[in-house]
Design a protein around this nucleic acid. Structure first.
Lengths: 154, 154
DNA sequence: CAAATTTTTCCATGTTATTCCATATATGCC
DNA sequence: GGCATATATGGAATAACATGGAAAAATTTG
C-alpha cells in the first residue's frame, strides 16, 4: 500500500481553503478517495487524516470494543463527533473547519505531515516543537540499550 | 448504513426552531425518515436522536427484557415517556421542545454531534467539556496496555 | 362557540459555502 | 536555459443554506 511520506507547509486562504500536497493528492486519487477522513488527534493538538484505508483500519479497531460499555461510548463520541469528511474540490483543495482550527491552532499556514497510512495536520510552530521532542525521545532511548555497542552513525 | 459524523453548531430562534445540519438531513432523507426520534440520554445531559434505524435498534434492545420485570417498567417509562418525534419541516428545521431545553440546558445554540447510527443534541459549553473528558479518558487508557510496544500516534 | 393563543407552513431575504475561472508561480523536461 | 506542463492562489459567479417574519391552520380557553 502507498504511504504518506514527508511534510509540506501550505497556506490557508481567507476562506479556509488549502491545496493538498500533490503527492498526497495523488495517493488519494489512485485509491479512489474523493474525500479525506479526518479525526482530532488524541495525544497532540493535531488532526489525523487519510483515505478510506485509514477509516477502515480505525473502524476495525473500534469494533473490538463491547458496544454496551462505557468505553465504547467514549470511542463513539471521539470517533464520530470528532471527525469530518473533507471534500477535495476541483482544484485539489480542502477547507479546514472551525473545529480543526480551534483544536490545532491552525491559522494562516498548515503542515501536512506524512504518517504512513495517514497524515497529520499541524500548526507549523507546534509541529516543529513536536518533532524536536520526538527526536529527543528517540535519541534518549537509543542511548542506553543500543548506542554503547552499536553503530555510531546509522 | 450511513453514519452521522462530525459536529455542527446551530442557532435556535425565538420559536425554538433549528435547522438540521444538511449532512444529517440528507442521511435521514435518503433513509425515508420525515421525523427525528429523540430520547433523553441516560448518561449525559443531552438528547439522543436519529431515524427509524435508531428506533429499531433501541426497541430490539428493550425487547430482550422480561416484560413483567421492574426493569421493563423503568425502561418503558424512560423509553416512551422520555421520547419525542421531531418533525422536519419544509425548510429542514425542527423545534426543540421545552422538555429538551430543560434537560439539556439548550438555549440559544445547540450542537448536533454525530454518533454513528444516532446523533446527540447538546448545549455547546457542556458538549465541549464532555469531549475534553472523553479524549482524556481514552488517552489515559491507551497509556497502559499498548503504548510501550505499539504505534506512537495512530 | 367564539376569541385568543400557539403552532405550523409558507415565503422573502441575507448570508455562507461551493464551484468555476483567470492569473501567477513553480516545476519538470528537453 | 527555455519551453511546456502542473500547481498555487485569489476572486467572481453560482448555488445552497440560514433565518426571520407573515399568513394560515390548529389548538386551547373562556
Amino acid at each position: 500500500m502507498e504511504r504518506f511520506v514527508s511534510s509540506y507547509v501550505k497556506k490557508v486562504d481567507s476562506k479556509g481553503r488549502v491545496s493538498v500536497p500533490p503527492p498526497f493528492r495523488a495517493i488519494l486519487q489512485r485509491a479512489g478517495d474523493e474525500q479525506i477522513y479526518s479525526q482530532l488527534a488524541l495525544e497532540t493538538p493535531s488532526v489525523m487524516a487519510g483515505g478510506a484505508a485509514l477509516l477502515k483500519m480505525l473502524e476495525s479497531r473500534m469494533n473490538e470494543i463491547d458496544p454496551f460499555s462505557q468505553d465504547y461510548d467514549d470511542w463513539a463520541a471521539h470517533f464520530y463527533s470528532g471527525s469530518d469528511y473533507l471534500k477535495i474540490d476541483g482544484d485539489g483543495r480542502i477547507v479546514v473547519t472551525d473545529a480543526i482550527r480551534e483544536y490545532t491552532g491552525i491559522d494562516g499556514e498548515v503542515v501536512f505531515a506524512g504518517r504512513g497510512i495517514s497524515f497529520h495536520l499541524w500548526q507549523p510552530a507546534r509541529f516543529e516543537d513536536y518533532m524536536t521532542g520526538v527526536r529527543k525521545r528517540i535519541a534518549k532511548k537509543r542511548e542506553l540499550p543500543k548506542r554503547e555497542e552499536g553503530a555510531l552513525n546509522e
